[in-house]
Design a protein around this nucleic acid. Structure first.
Length: 256
DNA sequence: GGCAATTGACCGCTAGT
DNA sequence: ACTAGCGGTCAATTGCC
């Protein structure tokens, strides 16, 4: 499992690196089992419930993150923060801007950032959201751009997309795309809501992978869940919380 | 002409006072 | 409770086919 992390992160101590890798490998294995379970719901070992596997994935990620967070020195503060931002994300799944993005210290609302900041909020979303980090913004769906905003302390603007079938089919899916600050060649895409439309464009993507398999709305009968096993995925905190609290997600999501 | 992107304005949410 | 500030969305305008 190769995480799409920036090269800067490579100077983490070897032991922690190994610990992180072990946890991520565990998570990958659990995710793989989950994939098998989803592909062959009737042929797999029934003792492996989806809930159990999801819990395993999340536990592995949590362990990996705690190892990361326990690192007092992630190389070159800015890089380290970037690494954490990449994985932990802010409350709303986006990297919380840090002072490292403001070369001229003391400016750029740094004081606000330290306390969370007035007005810095994550709009409550009733719909499921998840974040994906990828070198492309392309997926198997047709999107219509409806807005773009400069984000405070963020080097790149954020673009807002809604499903092209919002009005003809009432599809509520939206996504936000923002270039990653640490790796400008990467795009951080936050998906909100699930495609209920029946049409999807079939543009060229890495559609052979699990992620696009799940995102492809042609698989209407398939769980359109966040691509849990995607190596480039950052699962949103909200989603994690939903899972760990065993709160009912979208009713249709976990009925495997 | 139709569709999609752009962009300024507005609104809602959150936190400080 | 009020206010400031930010993020998200709307809608008019612009550009492209």
């Amino acid at each position: 499992m190769k995480m799409n992390l920036c090269p800067e992160t490579e100077s983490v101590s070897p032991q922690k690196k190994r610990a992180i890798m072990e946890e991520l490998v565990k998570g990958q294995e659990a995710a793989t089992q989950l994939r098998v379970l989803l592909h062959n719901p009737f042929e797999t070992d029934l003792s492996l419930s989806s809930h159990h596997l999801i819990a395993k994935v999340l536990t592995s990620f949590t362990q990996a993150l705690s190892v990361i967070n326990s690192s007092p020195l992630l190389p070159g503060s800015a890089d380290g923060l970037g690494y954490q931002n990449l994985l932990l994300s802010g409350e709303n799944g986006w990297s919380v801007p840090r002072s490292s993005n403001c070369p001229t210290s003391g400016d750029c609302s740094e004081k606000r950032s330290q306390k969370g900041g007035r007005g810095r909020y994550s709009r409550r979303k009733s719909a499921l959201t998840w974040t994906k980090l990828s070198c492309t913004t392309d997926d198997n769906h047709a999107w219509r751009k409806y807005g773009q905003k400069e984000i405070v302390n963020s080097q790149f603007p954020r673009s807002y997309f809604r499903c092209s079938h919002k009005y003809d089919q009432g599809c509520q899916a939206t996504k936000q795309v923002q270039r990653n600050q640490e790796c400008p060649t990467m795009y951080q895409t936050t998906y909100t809501g699930i495609h209920t439309c029946s049409k999807a464009t079939h543009s060229t993507t890495d559609s052979s992978n699990w992620e696009s398999y799940l995102l492809n709305s042609d698989h209407d009968s398939i769980l359109q869940d966040p691509p849990i096993s995607s190596p480039t995925l950052t699962i949103k905190q909200e989603f994690l919380k939903d899972l760990t609290d065993h709160k009912p997600l979208e009713p249709s999501l976990l009925q495997i």
